[in-house]
């Protein structure tokens, strides 16, 4: 019966699309990253690991981009999770207009990144931007910064915008996790005289682990692929300060060295495949247990 009622072509449609437009380009990319593919000549030659040698050589800037990508990923995971958890706890309490707040806090997630970039470029403008004007108005003029063009601040500002945009999403997932924890645990703990801190440490955190796994995996995969936030805010500047892997990929695009560009994607591909495999294994296990 299974054979007849669950025909393979049901899978095949999605699978074919996925193969043709996602898997095949990636495999081609892996192949081409061993060639000198570029925009100036129409023939390509096999050049072995030269492109990868370029990427990992210390004369070039690519390691900086990889490092920034990792810094971005780790800091957004931590910030979004901590703030998201705090917010989830907050909107799970007996506050007024609970639903309204949830809706508002999630809102940044639905604004297009391109628009977010345009708005925040204005907000961060050192001369007439909202932040610096506000600081000057309340007499904290010395705190004003060149948010997007100061080497010390640019990458932090990018991370801040990304956290602003992404935390609501994480909050909602964690909120769902919180709501699935039975009240009886807390009641029992209260009878035993547990403090709020202890309840959080011994009940909330362990039972929230599945949800935290999901958010961490989502943040991880998102962070490693980060492109649009950087692109719309600084496009890698000032100089090369805020370059991440994907902005470097696109500058290779414009320089016409497709070989190096696609080799960069391949490096990312390898990292993501390993991490992705581990992550999906984790998520699938949660699924069977939950």
């Amino acid at each position: 019966m299974t054979k007849r009622m669950y025909p393979f072509y049901f899978i095949a449609i999605a699978l074919v699309f996925y193969l043709v437009f996602a898997v095949i380009p990636s495999l081609m990319g892996i192949f081409l990253s061993f060639t000198d593919w570029n925009s100036y000549s129409r023939v390509t030659h096999f050049i072995g690991f030269d492109n990868f040698a370029t990427i990992f050589s210390s004369d070039e800037n690519y390691l900086h981009g990889i490092k920034n990508t990792i810094v971005f990923t780790i800091s957004t995971i931590i910030l979004k999770t901590v703030i998201g958890l705090f917010l989830a706890e907050l909107v799970n309490k007996k506050i007024k207009f609970k639903n309204l707040h949830r809706v508002l806090i999630f809102m940044p997630a639905i604004i297009p990144m391109l628009v977010v970039g345009i708005i925040f470029k204005s907000i961060f403008n050192p001369e007439y931007g909202l932040i610096n004007e506000a600081l000057r108005t309340i007499g904290l003029g010395q705190w004003t910064q060149q948010w997007l063009t100061d080497v010390q601040w640019a990458f932090k500002s990018i991370i801040a915008v990304d956290v602003w945009k992404g935390t609501g999403y994480i909050m909602v997932i964690l909120l769902a996790g919180l709501q699935s924890i039975s009240h009886s645990y807390y009641e029992a703990a209260e009878i035993d005289g547990a403090t709020a801190m202890m309840k959080f440490r011994f009940i909330t955190l362990p039972l929230l682990l599945p949800a935290l796994t999901v958010t961490t995996v989502l943040n991880l995969l998102y962070g490693l692929k980060i492109f649009d936030t950087v692109y719309v805010l600084t496009n890698g500047g000032p100089g090369y300060t805020t370059d991440v892997v994907y902005t470097q990929v696109f500058s290779q695009f414009s320089l016409g060295s497709y070989g190096v560009g696609t080799a960069l994607i391949t490096v990312l591909f390898v990292i993501m495949t390993i991490l992705g495999y581990v992550a999906i294994r984790l998520m699938s296990r949660e699924e069977y247990n939950g």
Binding site: P25, G29, L221, I265, T273, G276, Y277, I280
Partner: peptide, 17 residues
């Protein structure tokens, strides 16, 4: 299929496809 959540899109070769 769900590995695709992690798969980075290759913009160069996708053009050829």
């Amino acid at each position: 299929i769900i590995m695709g959540i992690a798969l980075p899109l290759n913009y160069f070769t996708l053009i050829d496809v």
